[in-house]
């Protein structure tokens, strides 16, 4: 991810009116995606080379490779996620034997790539870390489940389903995990308000946090 230079104008980042009261309706800056060029540096070239060697459809499967802040992110197409994960685990020179977690992210402005699932992989054999990221449309939020590759993804995928509504096909029991079973909506999505329920105390009503005055 590269940062729009025009937005990077100091720690205060004054733009527009510079109003910090929260009433000015300041617009948040947008993230621009770009791909990194070789050489990536560190062990990242080796990982990319080995994956390319082990995985004939590499160019089809990997949308882009991003090296940022000494971390490697492989953007993988949803259709190739399962194969890529299997190759990353099984290839001797890669050997990412642990998936440390699945994290979701919701980018409502990215048309047809609103929902992202981000997998943090660890290779204890080579002492390396990489990250794979998959983007899918909100209208069809399906991803293959990686429970067969890393059994530990089970609860992580349930959490990502619970919080973002990403449906992991092939998951053994994709149910809510943190929220109650009958909870409507997926709380971590950007279109879901924080709080949303009036706080009542002895007749006084405090609006939910998302409706209160905000400082930006």
């Amino acid at each position: 991810m590269s940062h729009d230079k025009t937005l990077n104008n100091g720690a205060f980042g004054v733009s527009g009116t510079g109003d910090t009261s929260g009433y000015g309706g300041l617009v948040k800056s947008k993230v621009k995606l770009g791909s990194s060029e070789r050489p990536f540096g560190s062990y990242f070239d080796e990982v990319a080379d080995e994956l390319e060697r082990a995985f004939p459809e590499f160019n089809d499967a990997i949308e882009k490779v991003i090296v940022d802040r000494d971390e490697l992110t492989l953007h993988v197409k949803a259709a190739h996620l399962f194969e890529t994960a299997t190759k990353l685990r099984d290839t001797e020179t890669l050997r990412f034997e642990q998936c440390m977690g699945v994290s979701g992210a919701h980018y409502p402005e990215e048309k047809n790539r609103e929902l992202h699932a981000i997998y943090h992989l660890l290779s204890m054999t080579h002492n390396r870390r990489i990250r794979i990221e998959v983007s899918i449309p909100d209208a069809n939020p399906h991803l293959p489940s990686l429970v067969e590759v890393w059994a530990g993804c089970n609860w992580n995928e349930r959490e990502t389903f619970d919080m973002f509504g990403i449906i992991f096909d092939g998951h053994p029991a994709l149910t809510r995990i943190l929220m109650p079973d009958d909870w409507p909506g997926h709380p971590q999505r950007k279109d879901y308000p924080l709080g949303g329920i009036d706080v009542e105390y002895k007749g006084a009503v405090v609006p939910p946090p998302s409706d209160r005055r905000e400082y930006r």
């Binding site: 991810m1 940062h3 729009d4 990077n8 720690a11 980042g13 800056s29 440390m100 981000i118 990250r131």
Partner: peptide, 10 residues
């Protein structure tokens, strides 16, 4: 608060 350049880390 201060601004943090866009990106992601683990």
């Amino acid at each position: 608060g201060f601004r943090v350049p866009a990106g992601q880390v683990y």
